[in-house]
Design a protein around this nucleic acid. Structure first.
Length: 384
RNA sequence: GCAGCCGUAGUGUAGCCCGGUCUAACACGCCACACUGUCACUGUGGAGAUCGCCGGUUCAAAUCCGGUCGGCUGCG
């Protein structure tokens, strides 16, 4: 079980400062959740996790089910004993893979579209199915990316797997929707997601926390209905999921979705915005009442040669940095910026050295977590 | 000195025997762009070789023939 205590509410926004206590430690919120899909913060050792100011991680049900399998992790005593990870763990339900391996893959889009949505074009109508998976009333039939075998995951299966994995916080199995679906599709998917939320709750038989996920895409009435419905089911916390509009008007739709929903959710429980958290998004979503968010950006960008700095992103694979003797970010107090310069890091990245990926991942996590830390300070000092 | 093998983008190779479908392929590298509940040390795209050089045969040569230069190996 978890407990959530709000230490302070911001005066000028819906931001909250809190502490979430879990069986594996406490988390100061707002917090960024590091993404550890395969029960590893990619490129980093367990010792390094706290050094990046990472307080909590999220692992993935779909991926761990495929490999090594929840039975093996269960026999090892659960994710914490199996991995030795020294911070609390969440498990994502596999619902995101319904999107990333489904419509997301078909249309090569993310959950925030890069172009404005036009209802007339590229809309997926009610009853449509993605090319490579099949969404049924009881769950989703996937094909394993490893060996092609069919994998069925629904709410019951996901909860069963997540209970074997033994994370501190579980999520309900849902269908993460695409930004390019029609209203009629979303109406149907919402009813299904609500039923799956109820079935996830019924399937739970441990004292692990379970977060229910609010859906409704870009539609105000559907988002509000979903927030009310999910709020009424008695979850331990909330996820805000599904597609979040597009990048136009500085992601206005995403912020609107939070404005429509967070005021309807039990304020004593934590709210997690699923899959969001670029530096530019952080303060805005916290101001709308978000306590937790997870984002692959710091680690993925790091592995792709990108470092975050106060002056913006820099791509260390560019030859120009071979002549740059500055640290990644001159104002950063992380171990990487203390020990290494851009020229050497650029060399490591260009040479494909694994430590280069480690250094950038470490720095980016520290950079992101420091930004969240500053936001907590602002709330504490009443400046938000 | 003789014989054999080899010489194709920055690098390593495929194609050559059985000329046209080679406006020359692949891998790595290079350049650009992308990446928000990670199928992700990934993905997409681009630039880059007139096929060692000269000549011949042919309607047509990276491909056949002669010469030549360079490399490797063997024999002397």
């Amino acid at each position: 079980m978890i407990t959530f205590r709000i230490l302070k509410k911001a005066l000028r926004s819906r931001a909250r400062l809190g502490i979430m206590a879990t069986p594996h430690g406490a988390v100061e919120t707002p917090a960024m959740v590091g993404v550890a899909t395969q029960a590893a913060l990619k490129c980093l050792t367990n010792d390094e996790i706290p050094l990046t100011k990472t307080q909590i991680l999220i692992a993935n049900t779909f991926h761990l089910h495929l490999r090594p399998g929840e039975q093996l992790i269960g026999r090892a005593g659960g994710l914490h004993k199996f991995s030795g990870i020294p911070v609390p763990l969440m498990t994502d339900s596999g619902g995101y893979q319904v999107f990333s391996l489904g419509f997301g893959r078909d249309t090569k889009t993310g959950k925030i579209a890069k172009t404005a949505h036009k209802d007339a074009e590229a809309s997926v109508g009610r009853g449509a199915q993605p090319k490579n998976i099949k969404i049924t009333p009881d769950g989703v039939r996937f094909h394993s990316p490893i060996d092609g075998r069919e994998i069925f995951i629904g709410p019951k299966e996901s909860i069963r797997i997540q209970q074997k994995l033994g994370g501190d916080i579980m999520f309900t199995f849902d269908e993460c929707t695409s930004p390019f679906v029609s209203r009629s599709y979303i109406e149907h998917a919402l009813r299904q997601n609500h039923r799956w939320a109820e079935n996830s709750l019924k399937a739970r038989s441990t004292d692990q926390a379970l977060f229910g996920i609010v859906h409704g895409s870009r539609f105000r009435d559907l988002r509000r209905a979903s927030a009310n419905f999910i709020n009424g089911l008695g979850f331990d916390g909330f996820g805000i999921g599904g597609d979040l509009g597009d990048v136009t008007q500085e992601k206005r739709t995403m912020i609107n979705i939070l404005r429509w929903t967070t005021p309807l959710l039990d304020e004593t429980k934590p709210r997690h915005l699923l899959g969001i958290g670029l530096i530019e998004d952080m303060e805005r979503i916290v101001k709308e009442g978000i306590d937790l968010f997870d984002c692959t950006e710091p680690t993925r960008a790091g592995r792709h040669g990108i470092a975050y700095t106060r002056a913006g992103r820099i791509d260390l694979s560019k030859a120009i940095f071979l002549g740059d003797k500055k640290p990644l970010d001159p104002q950063c107090s992380c171990g990487v910026c203390a020990a290494y310069k851009r020229n050497y890091l650029a060399h490591l990245i260009r040479a494909g050295e694994i430590t280069g990926l480690r250094h950038l991942s470490f720095h980016n996590l520290y950079f992101f977590n420091s930004a969240v830390e500053k936001i907590r300070e602002k709330i504490k000092k009443g400046r938000m």
